[in-house]
C-alpha cells in the first residue's frame, strides 16, 4: 500500500486515548490536524481543516450515548466522499449498518476500540478506509455470520472462514497470508462462495466487500 501522510481529524473525549491515538498516528507518519472532545467540535473541525479522514469515538459528551456515530452519519450525508472511521467500545451491528448505509458504503470503517491496541493493523485499516475501502470489525462479521444461517449452511467451514475475512475487507493477498494458503486457492474459495450465495463475481475488493456485507445484513 502506498504510504502517504494522512491529515486526520480525531474526535475522542478521553484525553488519555486522544494523546495515545495522536502518538500512534504520528508514529506511522500521519498528522492529526485537529483533536476534539465532542461531536459539535468535530463538525467544526471538519469544516475548518477538510481532512483526509475522520476518526471518531461513538460515545461522547454531552449525552455519552451515540453522539459520535450520529456526527459521523451526518458528516457522511453531507460529504459522501469523506472517509470516516468509527471506533466503538462495544460491537453493535446496528451501528455498522447505519454507517454502511451512508454514501455508497465506501470509505467507511467501524472498529472495536480494542483494535487500536494492535497498532499496525489499526493503521492499516485506517489507510484502507482513507483510500475508499470498507473496514468492518471481525466481531460484527461474526455476528452477521451467526445470523444468516440458511444458505450459509452450504458453505464448508473453510469457505465460511474466507467469507468472514472478505467481509472484514481483506484483500485476496491478505486472506492468503492469514490462512497460510496460496492466493490462487483463496480466489477459488471466493469464487465458490459467491456462486453458492448467488453474488456477482469479480469486481474490485471494495465492491465485493459491500456485496458480501449487504448479503449478510439480509
Amino acid at each position: 500500500m502506498p504510504s502517504r501522510s494522512l491529515r486526520v481529524v480525531l474526535a475522542e473525549d478521553s484525553v488519555l486515548l486522544r494523546e495515545g491515538l495522536i502518538g500512534v498516528l504520528g508514529r506511522f507518519g500521519h498528522e492529526t490536524v485537529a483533536a476534539v472532545g465532542d461531536a459539535e467540535a468535530l463538525r467544526d473541525a471538519v469544516s475548518a481543516y477538510d481532512p483526509d479522514i475522520v476518526v471518531t469515538d461513538v460515545r461522547m459528551p454531552p449525552g455519552f450515548q451515540d453522539e459520535g456515530l450520529r456526527a459521523a452519519v451526518a458528516l457522511r450525508t453531507e460529504r459522501p466522499a469523506l472517509p470516516v472511521l468509527v471506533l466503538s467500545q462495544y460491537v453493535q451491528r446496528t451501528y455498522a449498518a447505519e454507517l454502511l448505509d451512508t454514501g455508497d458504503g465506501t470509505g467507511v470503517g467501524y472498529l472495536l476500540k480494542d483494535r487500536v491496541g494492535q497498532v499496525e493493523q489499526f493503521v492499516e485499516g485506517l489507510t484502507r478506509v482513507a483510500d475508499g475501502g470498507t473496514v468492518v470489525d471481525p466481531e460484527v462479521v461474526r455476528q452477521l455470520l451467526r445470523r444468516r444461517r440458511d444458505p450459509l449452511a452450504q458453505l464448508t467451514p473453510r469457505e465460511r472462514e474466507v467469507l468472514g475475512l472478505v467481509a472484514e475487507g481483506k484483500s485476496n493477498a491478505a486472506i492468503a497470508a492469514g490462512l497460510v494458503v496460496s492466493e490462487a486457492a483463496v480466489g477459488k474459495h471466493i469464487g465458490n462462495i459467491l456462486a453458492k450465495l448467488d453474488l456477482p463475481q469479480g469486481d474490485g475488493t471494495h465492491r465485493r466487500v459491500l456485496a458480501v456485507l449487504a448479503y449478510l445484513r439480509g
Binding site: S14, L16, L17, G23, V24, D114, V116, G117, E120
Partner: peptide, 14 residues
C-alpha cells in the same frame, strides 16, 4: 478502566 486499558494496549503496541 476500559479507556485506560485501551491506552495501555496502545502503549504496549507501540
Amino acid at each position: 478502566a476500559q479507556q485506560r486499558l485501551v491506552a495501555l494496549t496502545m502503549g504496549l503496541g507501540l
